[in-house]
Nucleic acid binder design. Sequence first.
DNA 1: CAGTGGTCTAGACCACAAG
DNA 2: TTGTGGTCTAGACCACTGG
Lengths: 233, 233
Amino acid sequence: MTTTEFNTWQSVQEEVLRRINSREWKPGELIPNEAELSLEFGCARATVNRALRGLAEAGLLDRRRKAGTRVTLHPIRKATLDIPIIRHEVENRGQAYRYSLLSRTLREPPPDIRAKMQLPAGPKLLHVQALHMADAKPHIFEDRWINQHVVKHASNAEFSTISPNEWLVINVPFHGGDIAFTAVGANAREAEILNCRAGEALFVIERNTWNDQGVISTVRLACAPGYRLHTGI
Amino acid sequence: MTTTEFNTWQSVQEEVLRRINSREWKPGELIPNEAELSLEFGCARATVNRALRGLAEAGLLDRRRKAGTRVTLHPIRKATLDIPIIRHEVENRGQAYRYSLLSRTLREPPPDIRAKMQLPAGPKLLHVQALHMADAKPHIFEDRWINQHVVKHASNAEFSTISPNEWLVINVPFHGGDIAFTAVGANAREAEILNCRAGEALFVIERNTWNDQGVISTVRLACAPGYRLHTGI
DNA sequence: CAGTGGTCTAGACCACAAG
DNA sequence: TTGTGGTCTAGACCACTGG
């Protein structure tokens, strides 16, 4: 028996992937356990574990103690989006980045914002509106509320030369957040700022971030027409 | 010296995360190497490695052989999107899923599709248009080209009861792909099919998938107004 | 209860890249 | 050249959970 040797977790992973794709191991099917595989592949169990763990994270395998490892029936593909600082995103495309602060006020947020940030009525928040430009053309309109009760030193930030987007990334670590992507027609103000027709389709990114103190910030990024978010699988 | 013990990679990771967030280890700064940390934490180096690897994958640490491990200067946040089968997405929201095949033809693709699929002029492809509905309302308009020279058995699929979306996920393993998200105004046909006004903002997902044989399929998913894609960070 | 994956360990060698 | 992370190993114990 000429057993091919699988020394690295990558080679084991490739082989397992091959068996899944070739239907040698069919969707829903139980595959041999780690001990058996390590024997067959001629490597340590830890190596098999490393390989299978990766495939489980990718959603191709279902692993459960005692129940064993199965090929996922309907693999849920995962796409990873990089969320860079806007300035970097623009500069990495070779475009000239410019930033312009439109307004910076301290005021009580409207109910919908309060709801998003899970705050009671009353306290004022920092409201910042700014425009990110690429090659002198409007790129992204940033409309942000910052909870300066959680981010105390935010009150001192002027945001005249650095965008809240970048300032927060650099200065405020966060523990979690959520992102939503939608398409909406530009309202009058957005149309004016982004230099497009009212009602024109805009790509909108909404993001909340929080740490253990509470919600840090909620932001709505309205991207100029033609904006395209892409990634590999 | 009352050294707290860190037995698990998770606890090590938490502690490292704490030091990063508290600026005990500042952005751009070199942190102790694995051997030193394993000594300090009273665990094996492999445990430290496991913890740091995770943080590196999350984009919080930069690790390079010989150069050591540094706290990332501008952490690039990564959002992971789950790309489920449309039917599952609808059903998981508790809505009734319905599917309707609009057209299925074999014809030569227009130049822009050919370009996307990196195909020469000449060969015909399978063109399928279908509508996914949620609670009897139009949900997603699927406009797909399938390369039946790569996916040979696709010629036999009727797509009358199962969508190409689902059929492909189940029947054709792929090695790679790319996704793009945009916002566009609905054209006349999309408006009619999705039951909305022409020009109304639609969330559009474009996806290509390929395997080692070549491009499998390219699809444009036009989502009904109000569609929202969201995820955690 | 017992089988499976999850993890830790101590030690070893290797691959890469900075100096 | 040499220090650093990357990985493998053999063995061990643990944690979860299915039967």
